[in-house]
């Protein structure tokens, strides 16, 4: 089991200034599985997600204690370059955020920075868009602005853009909360498809979504990891009363 873990979090505390947002979190994420992080607003699930690719570094006055091991290496060790980490651990945000550039240039932005040769780019664009099930919709308008796409298409473009970096892990921060039900269904199918090749960690407010797409579910409350287990177990007979209350809608 342990050999199959791609990320291990060991006794992590996280502070915004003097406020502690995460308390003594230890957990592991399995390779090629979908792990859902659930919990009420402000419980620290998004904060934890952003710790995994060092996005919280961009916020002033934050502090991390403990270790986060990615493939056995502590990503918060002083000699680690966050840029390297972010190239291996991709992220999709809550609000679709394509660049105000063409669809093609949105996809090639990351690979170009990473030194992928110009000759390989068209193939990579097609492959990434196909993986994100967007290719057929945009193959004739690659040179048009990504801003013209619908919200759901924009979000799949953002997924394609993250996939073009060929990451090992894909972090998704409530990727469907700004989308309509049909777009949401498409993204969920996509996640199902993607887990064959990627490890996916997804934050969601939507409990049905967590139940539908994840293999493992972690429930957070007030910065603590309350319960972490197989999704089936969490949603049928959770060990902790708080988890049950949240899942059955008694609070949150």
């Amino acid at each position: 089991m342990a050999a199959n873990d791609i990320i291990r979090i060991h006794r992590v505390n996280f502070y915004y200034g003097a406020v502690r947002a995460l308390t003594d979190i230890s957990m592991q994420f399995e390779k090629n599985k979908v792990t859902a992080l659930i919990g009420p607003s402000g419980c620290g699930k998004s904060t934890l997600l952003r710790l995994l690719n060092r996005m919280n570094d961009l916020i002033d006055g934050t502090r991390v204690e403990g270790e986060i091991l990615f493939e056995g290496r502590n990503i918060y060790a002083p000699q680690v370059d966050p840029v390297e980490i972010r190239r291996k651990i991709g992220m999709v945000f809550q609000k679709p955020n394509p660049f105000p550039k063409t669809i093609y240039n949105n996809i090639t932005y990351g690979p170009r920075l990473n030194g992928v040769s110009a000759a390989d780019l068209p193939g990579l664009v097609e492959q990434s868009l196909r993986q994100a099930v967007l290719w057929d919709e945009v193959k004739d308008i690659l040179d048009k602005s990504a801003m013209n796409l619908s919200g759901g298409q924009q979000q799949r473009l953002c997924i394609a853009r993250a996939l073009a970096m060929k990451p090992d892990v894909l972090l998704m921060d409530e990727p469907t909360s700004a989308l309509d039900p049909i777009s949401t269904a498409k993204i969920e199918e996509l996640v199902e498809e993607l887990k064959r090749h990627y490890t996916i960690i997804i934050v969601t407010h939507n409990m049905q979504q967590a139940a539908r797409i994840s293999d493992q579910t972690a429930f957070f409350y007030l910065g603590n990891l309350i319960e972490y287990n197989k999704t089936e177990k969490i949603f049928t007979k959770p060990d902790v009363k708080q988890t049950e209350d949240y899942i059955t809608g008694r609070f949150g």
Binding site: R86, M91, F93, K95, N97, P100, Y109, G110, M165
Partner: peptide, 24 residues
């Protein structure tokens, strides 16, 4: 959001400024 997207794709601060922020 644009800046975050850029950093999340492994861009450095300078790359983000030159290729995303200034063009926008």
């Amino acid at each position: 959001e644009f800046k975050e997207a850029s950093y999340a794709l492994g861009a450095t601060k300078f790359e983000t400024i030159a290729k995303v922020i200034v063009p926008a």
